[in-house]
């Protein structure tokens, strides 16, 4: 079965990122496919590479990034939500005339249409939020 998963909360602030990460791992372990993971609202903060949590804490952004790498996942950060919260990839930073970008490998920035398309193409849409 094909899944689209949406995450609406930021890491560390709310458990939704942890729950969604474990859910996605289980989806793959059970032999299903993840069509897309879509990060919206504060969920876009799961895609920064500038997070430095204490060494003994989990490394959520890196774990998402690794999951994307291991399974060639399509992980999308909503552009409108990202712009509000200062999440930029290189091309968007250049377009906005900004001096830095901060997206971690495995994520890319795109529009809300990716969420809708994901739900159309997938058998199940599962939402993790506040």
């Amino acid at each position: 079965m094909k899944f689209t998963v949406m995450i609406n909360e930021g890491p560390y602030q709310h458990q939704s990122s942890d729950s969604a990460l474990q859910f996605c791992r289980a989806v793959l372990a059970e032999g299903h496919d993840i069509f897309r993971v879509f990060f919206y609202n504060d969920g876009v903060n799961n895609g920064t590479r500038l997070s430095v949590p204490p060494k003994d804490d989990r490394q959520l952004q890196k774990e998402w990034s690794q999951l994307a790498k291991d399974h060639s996942l399509d992980m999308v950060i909503c552009i409108a939500a990202a712009q509000r919260r200062g999440l930029m990839d290189a091309s968007e930073a250049e377009r906005q005339g900004l001096d830095a970008n901060n997206i971690i490998d495995g994520f890319h920035i795109s529009g809300l249409g990716q969420l809708i398309e994901g739900s159309i193409q997938s058998d199940r849409t599962v939402i993790f939020g506040d």
Partner: peptide, 13 residues
């Protein structure tokens, strides 16, 4: 959890 999402036709959070 995954199996529950598969067994049911839809999910609502």
């Amino acid at each position: 959890f995954v199996n529950l999402t598969v067994e049911n036709d839809t999910t609502q959070s």
